[in-house]
Simulated assay, not measured.
Amino acid sequence: MRWTSYLSPRDHAEHAALLVDGELRALDRTLLDLLRDADPLEAWAERATAAPWERLAADGVALLAPIPTPPSVRDFMAFEDHVVTSYAAMGIPVSPVWYEQPVFYFTNPAAILGPQQDVPMAPGTSRYDYELEVAAVIGKAGADLRPDEAEGHIAGYVIFCDWSARDLQGHEMKAGLGPAKGKDTATSLGPWLVTPDELAPFRKGNGYDLRMSTSVNGREYSVGNWADLYWSFAEMVAYASRGTVLRPGDVLGSGTVGTGCVLELGLTHGERAYPWLRPGDEVRVEIDGLGAIEARIVEGTAPIPLR
């Protein structure tokens, strides 16, 4: 199944929709409502197919993020290639802790953008970046989950791109916290929440044998593969649930795939070869089986002085 969210022209409200033969079959509920409901998504898919609240051609609708306002957003760092390459290029050793447990930070649920929305520059940045990632969306609440049961709590997967102000990030993290404002302005999700059964034929290693790529202004920058995960989503979900409750709609990003950001490419090939993002740049983030995010970078607001 492929689910998404959109603003209906009928009532100007958010609705969940199932993709069926190039058409959106909508329900008079949000996707977060469906995930929180006792009935499984399969039952809601039957209702959407048989008696939709609204039917629209998918190519004529500006989609929202599948979960426009998640209860929480965690972003992990689970691809070893990215960690090793970027740290080596900066002359920093990889901490042994990274191999002991999956690590993550919390990011901003209020900064979620849809798959075709413009992305503003973070206030004050001159080193803006994309991050090529995949994310799991929690469909069933759970706490203190074991890895062998954690995957059953995943409703589906979405493309995840957290737009990163590298100069702000590097500066604020000198204080021993963060990233915060370096990641606070925008995170794009979508276009579809794809259920795990659709991806099952591609299962490989700790993920799926699906190509991940990013292009900027039509030039290919990044290429990776979901199967290269060091930490599986089962392990990430289990660790995230330790001592707390994961709720339906929570989003867990994988972290950047190897070569999946300008920072990594610039460190290894030089900033002139892979320049930082600027207003007017067109960025396409794509994962086979999940679709693509197509975003235009636009001017952001100026930073307001604190003192």
Rank of each mutant, 00 (worst) to 15 (best):
Y274F: 15
S215P: 01
P191A: 02
L199D: 00
T195F: 00
G218Y: 02
S241T: 11
R203A: 15
A150K: 04
S215H: 08
N206M: 13
A186E: 03
D250H: 13
G190Y: 00
P179M: 12
F202C: 13
G260L: 05
D184H: 13
L252E: 02
G253D: 01
S164Y: 06
R203Y: 04
L177N: 11
Y208L: 09
G170P: 09
P196A: 08
L199Y: 00
V158N: 02
S241E: 05
R247G: 06
A165M: 08
Y274N: 12
E198F: 07
S222Y: 00
L177H: 13
D197R: 07
A200S: 12
D184T: 09
N206H: 14
V194C: 03
E220I: 11
W163T: 03
L267R: 09
Y221Q: 10
G176A: 12
A186W: 03
D167F: 09
P248W: 03
S188T: 06
A186S: 14
E235L: 10
T259W: 07
D162V: 04
W231T: 10
R242S: 15
Y221D: 10
L193A: 06
A180Y: 13
E264Q: 15
C261G: 09
R242G: 13
W231G: 11
S215V: 03
S222W: 01
K183E: 04
A200Y: 01
P275T: 04
L267V: 05
P179C: 13
E151Y: 08
T214R: 02
G260F: 05
F160Y: 12
G170L: 13
H171F: 14
K181H: 11
D184N: 14
S232F: 09
L267F: 09
S241I: 08
L277Y: 06
D250V: 12
R242W: 13
G218A: 08
E198G: 07
A175D: 13
T244E: 09
T244M: 13
A238S: 14
R166Q: 11
W226F: 15
T214W: 01
T187Y: 00
L263M: 12
G170W: 08
T214F: 01
S232M: 09
G152Q: 08
L265G: 03
M212A: 15
P275K: 11
G182W: 06
C261K: 04
G182V: 12
R166E: 07
A234K: 10
S215Q: 12
D167R: 07
E220T: 14
W231M: 11
K204S: 14
F202I: 02
S213L: 06
C261H: 03
R242D: 13
P275H: 12
W192T: 09
F160L: 02
V216D: 06
A240M: 09
E172S: 10
T195K: 01
V158P: 01
L199R: 02
D250R: 13
V223Q: 10
P191S: 06
T195P: 05
S254W: 00
V251R: 07
A186Y: 06
A180G: 11
A165F: 03
A175T: 15
W231D: 07
D162P: 10
I159K: 02
E264A: 14
G205N: 12
R203H: 10
V251M: 04
L277R: 05
D162Y: 02
A200N: 02
